[in-house]
Design a protein around this nucleic acid. Structure first.
Length: 576
RNA sequence: GCGCUCGUAGCUCAGUGGAUAGAGCAGAGGACUUCUAAUCCUAAGGUCGCAGGUUCGAAUCCUGCCGGGCGCACCA
């Protein structure tokens, strides 16, 4: 009996053995799903050139060498030298039976590694906007996936809680009064607070001067100033927690690791860089010039670690964070879920950290970058007034629209269920729209499309899941998960089984690449394949082993959908 | 100017050097006494920005060009 899980992996291994026997060296079988058969390998074509052999002859020899008879009904050489595999229904049935009794749906746990995920990173006393939305959603999915695979995941919410803007913000706080300021911040009017402070700063030389003096007091640890600063930060954190609760992400209070947390480490970072001989003075600033970066004049590009005025910049904080994460948190994989515009900056930080020896194998860092959220006009999403859009306003509208849809489509649901479903659908739609396209590209934000029940959307996947639950409700049945042998005969059944067996491969791939649209695409494919099965293969009306088999397939599909959606941070309701 | 990145159907997007480039939406035509029609089926829709090159084979790799976005010294 084959190992639980990857049918694809099993076939790949068998073929790889045959390739190696024929070629004399290891060959990647270039194995994949195909429209011409269940699976296809086209590696014989490439190999033929290297061996100066006829590709069809070579493929025929490989097929003869591979022992696939116990797995496949047919193994054919086709076209110029493709090897097409059709898996036997018996094997499909026994493999899917095995998976159906596995809590992990065929996905193995991994050798655990400590992974730091840096994501969300709002700024204290400043509203969260769509940029934070992407970072938060993608980061949360990364955390869920890596944790589910068995990794030790440390969440780091790099809150912007330090720097020159706080002089201005504290002075503004004093102007409006502590009580009033705390109220504004706790109800989430961060935009109002920040923009008013900004307006005064830009418009009044006197206010600017007060702000500058306040920054100095803050940096020198003046207790009265620190108290006011803490008030700003604490109230902001409270507000961010309400946003995270609405988003249903796993960020907790203890995950805030603000910039200020690294203050004490900044001077030592500089000292160490100096000791290592990496520091150079440039125009009065302390800089590191990592290998391979140039500015617009073609000169070496500096990472400024201490400004001319003696202050530290964000680069120093980022370096201190790398050091802390590797040395104190013992992480070997650092993930930065940060927008693509910061790519060069992060690459420079990683390069300097590597040159300083803070980031050495097996530890490594990766920028999990993402593009912008665009409006219907194809430009970066902005409010009518041209300002940034509040994240909560976006979520509120998604919830409202979802609630309206649910009320209209399924008026029979009681009020509590309806509210619950509206949450799952509304928030799920926003998250899924973000995670279902290539994160490296920009995407167009469109409520109507993301909330549609057709196409590659959260509601479509959730609906497929809810329909399955409905079958079990209607039949008064509980799923059977004893791994009993089932039967696979209909084309729609075998298509569904092949799809179900592909879950482990996509999960493992996404754990490496953090390209969640591949998981989303898989789940969408599973849903459409299931729906085809649902249309053609009656379940409750079937009898005997056919009915039992279909029930197992339904249950397994529902579990893979729910698990896959959960990895994306999305809830699959029992009914819709 | 240099660097990064994107350009695929009217629209929104997939596409790992392999056979005839795929979905969804919109538009056209069809299917509900049925396990949820919130669905499904059918047909239509493409010079894969342009031009070269590498290859048995290129949307995919390389070069150039055109067009969009972003970055390039003390904000984060």
């Amino acid at each position: 009996m084959p190992v639980v899980g990857s049918l694809e992996e099993l076939l790949r291994q068998r073929l790889a053995g045959a390739f190696e026997n024929v070629a004399g060296v290891p060959v990647d079988p270039a194995f994949r799903r195909s429209q011409h058969a269940d699976f296809q390998s086209d590696a014989a074509l490439g190999l033929a050139r290297r061996l100066r052999a006829n590709p069809r002859d070579l493929a025929t020899r490989i097929v003869a060498e591979a022992s696939l008879g116990d797995l496949c009904d047919s193994v054919e050489v086709s076209g110029p030298g493709f090897i097409n595999l059709t898996v036997s229904n018996t094997v499909l049935a026994s493999m899917v039976s095995e998976v159906s009794r596995d809590d992990r749906l065929g996905v193995s746990t991994v050798e655990p590694e400590t992974v730091v995920v840096d994501y969300s990173a709002p700024n204290a006393a400043k509203e969260m906007h769509v940029g934070h939305l992407r970072s938060t959603i993608i980061g949360d999915a990364a955390v869920r996936l890596l944790e589910w695979l068995g990794h030790q995941v440390v969440r780091q919410n790099h809150l912007g809680d330090w720097g020159t803007p706080f002089g201005m913000l504290i002075e503004h706080l004093l102007d409006v009064g502590e009580t009033e300021a705390a109220h504004e911040l706790s109800v989430g009017d961060l935009n109002g607070f920040y923009t008013e402070a900004r307006r005064k700063f830009d418009g009044s030389a006197d206010f600017q001067e007060r702000s500058r003096r306040r920054v100095v007091l803050l940096q020198n640890g003046d207790e009265a100033t620190l108290r006011l600063w803490r008030l700003l930060v604490t109230e902001s954190k409270q507000y961010f927690m309400t946003v995270y609760a609405q988003l249903e992400v796993r960020l907790a209070e203890g995950d805030f690791a603000g910039e200020s947390a690294y203050n004490a480490a900044l001077a030592p970072v500089i000292d160490e860089l100096r000791r290592l001989g990496l520091l150079r003075d440039s125009q009065g600033a302390d800089c590191v010039f990592p290998e391979g970066f140039t500015n617009r004049a073609g000169e070496p590009l500096p990472l400024i670690v201490r400004k001319r005025d003696g202050g530290f910049g964000y680069a120093t904080t980022d370096l201190a964070a790398v050091r802390h994460r590797v040395q104190d948190l013992k992480a070997t994989r650092l993930l930065y879920v940060v927008g693509l515009p910061q790519r060069q900056h992060l690459e420079m930080v990683f390069a300097v950290a590597a040159e300083a020896g803070w980031l050495a194998p097996p530890a490594r860092a990766a920028h999990i970058g993402f593009g912008s959220v665009l409006g219907a006009d194809g430009k970066v999403l902005r409010s009518r007034a041209g300002g940034t859009i509040k994240l909560v306003a976006l979520l509120d509208e998604a919830l409202e629209r979802a609630a309206r849809l649910i009320a209209e489509k399924n008026p029979d649901l009681d009020a509590d269920t309806r509210a619950e479903v509206a949450r799952a659908v509304g928030i799920g739609a926003v998250k899924y729209a973000d995670l279902s396209t290539d994160r490296g590209k920009d995407y167009v934000f469109d409520f109507a499309r993301m909330l549609s029940f057709d196409g590659n959307t959260a509601p479509y996947l959730q609906y497929a899941h809810a329909r399955i639950q409905s079958i079990f409700r209607k039949g008064g049945l509980t799923p059977n998960r004893d791994g009993r042998l089932i039967q696979v005969t209909e084309p729609a059944e075998r298509a569904l089984v092949i799809e179900l067996l592909g879950f482990p491969a996509v999960v493992n791939e996404v754990a490496q690449t953090l390209e969640f649209h591949r998981l989303a695409g898989y789940l969408y494919g599973l849903s459409t394949t299931f729906t085809a099965f649902y249309e053609r293969c009656p379940v409750l009306k079937a009898e005997g082993i056919v009915r039992d088999s279909r029930l197992v397939l339904c249950d397994l599909t529902a579990r893979v959908l729910a698990q896959g959606l959960d990895l994306l941070g999305i809830t699959a309701p029992q009914r819709m």
